[in-house]
């Protein structure tokens, strides 16, 4: 039971990060139906910038509290990523707004490659170790030896919730947010109503990038590592989460992110036990084909944690095939 609880905590933490990244995908998609493939790289750049600032401050020997140093890292990463998000939109995507659908997708892949290798040039090929300056205390849940939740995990989950709430408020309660939603509904009509559509589209990129910056710092401090390739898979998974929840839908992205995090953690945690043939009747469990092997090894596992990266893709494919609008998506994506 403790283990299950621990896996749920793990899943919720990763899921919160996915959710924050997924929000960036879903906002952009909601407005211009573009999969911003380079979004994962924005997360990576955010982590790298924060890494540089934190290293510099930690090394400078200033009498700053650790919390302030990390905060400075975040505050540096956010504007850099926002600028990057704006540049991406302005230089790569805006000129293609009326091009065939596939053109921006190819551009996005191109930008993703470019950003990765620029990061390689700047920060090198080796993984960079995030300095461990914040005290990372673990709190035991249900006695010693049971599940534990660390202060970083608590911080990630709480911060994610706050960001989600803040974004929801922003999009639904402010004039700016309403203008963004109007643009998402119909660019032309919104423009007729006096909304500067270009600005709104750029705004979704910039807001998404700011969230990505925070996500980057979260991932960096959580795993203690930043690497120039870290963004790509994370981005794909977050995209899967957005699709799972219903792309274009903010609540969907959050739900999808948390669900995907849980699916991954629980899948990794339990799939090997479920697919252990030795536990199956007829095959391993007494008188089966594998009795000898089971007696020798104790287990014959078909699928283990080696398939953990498959889960996200499987979820993505299944959702798209059986429920293309996702869990909460109202809009059916049949705009050929």
């Amino acid at each position: 039971m403790d283990i299950l609880l621990q896996q749920i905590i793990n899943g919720l933490t990763t899921g919160s990060v996915y959710a924050i990244v997924a929000l960036g995908y879903t906002m952009v998609y909601g407005v211009i139906q573009l999969i911003n493939f380079a979004h994962g790289e924005v997360v990576m750049i955010g982590a790298m910038v924060a890494f540089t600032v934190i290293m510099a401050l930690a090394g400078a020997g200033l009498p700053l509290p650790p919390f302030a140093i990390v905060l400075a890292g975040v505050l540096a990463a956010i504007p850099v990523c926002m600028a990057l998000g704006y540049l991406l939109e302005r230089l790569a995507y805006r000129p293609l707004r009326h091009a065939p659908r596939l053109a921006p997708l190819i551009t996005a892949i191109g930008m993703s490659i470019v950003l990765q290798h620029l990061a390689l040039l700047i920060w090198g090929r080796d993984p960079r170790a995030f300095p461990q300056i914040m005290e990372n205390t673990s709190f035991a849940i249900g006695g010693t030896g049971g599940a534990a939740i660390s202060s970083v995990q608590i911080a990630i989950i709480l911060l994610s919730l706050a960001l989600m709430a803040g974004l929801t408020w922003f999009v639904y309660r402010t004039r700016f947010g309403i203008a963004i939603r109007a643009t998402a509904e119909d660019v032309r009509v919104a423009a007729l109503m006096g909304v500067d559509a270009d600005r709104m589209i750029a705004a979704t990129f910039v807001i998404g990038a700011a969230l990505a910056a925070v996500a980057g710092v979260m991932v960096g401090t959580y795993y203690g590592i930043a690497h120039y390739t870290m963004g790509f898979t994370l981005g794909l998974k977050a995209f899967s989460a957005a699709v799972l929840g219903g792309i274009g839908n903010l609540a969907g992205a959050m739900l999808g992110g948390l669900l995907l995090g849980l699916v991954e953690a629980l899948g990794t945690g339990y799939i090997s036990e479920i697919t252990d043939l030795c536990r199956w009747p007829l095959i391993g469990d007494g008188g089966g084909l594998l009795t000898e092997r089971c007696a020798a090894d104790g287990h014959v596992v078909l699928f283990g944690s080696n398939y953990q990266d498959v889960f996200a893709f499987l979820v993505l494919i299944l959702v798209l095939v059986f429920r293309p609008s996702g869990l909460l998506g109202e809009r059916v994506s049949e705009r050929a």
């Binding site: 139906q33 573009l34 999969i35 659908r101 596939l102 997708l105 794909l236 995209f239 899967s240 699709v243 080696n306 398939y307 990266d309 498959v310 996200a312 893709f313 499987l314 993505l316 494919i317 798209l320 095939v321 293309p324 994506s333 049949e334 705009r335 050929a336």
Partner: peptide
């Protein structure tokens, strides 16, 4: 068969996922 009714950009992502699944 199951994915072709998806729109172009979704198809791109699904094929990408498929490629990775095969490799894994």
């Amino acid at each position: 068969a199951p994915t072709l009714r998806l729109r172009g950009d979704y198809l791109a992502i699904v094929t990408l996922g498929f490629g990775e699944i095969v490799r894994i």
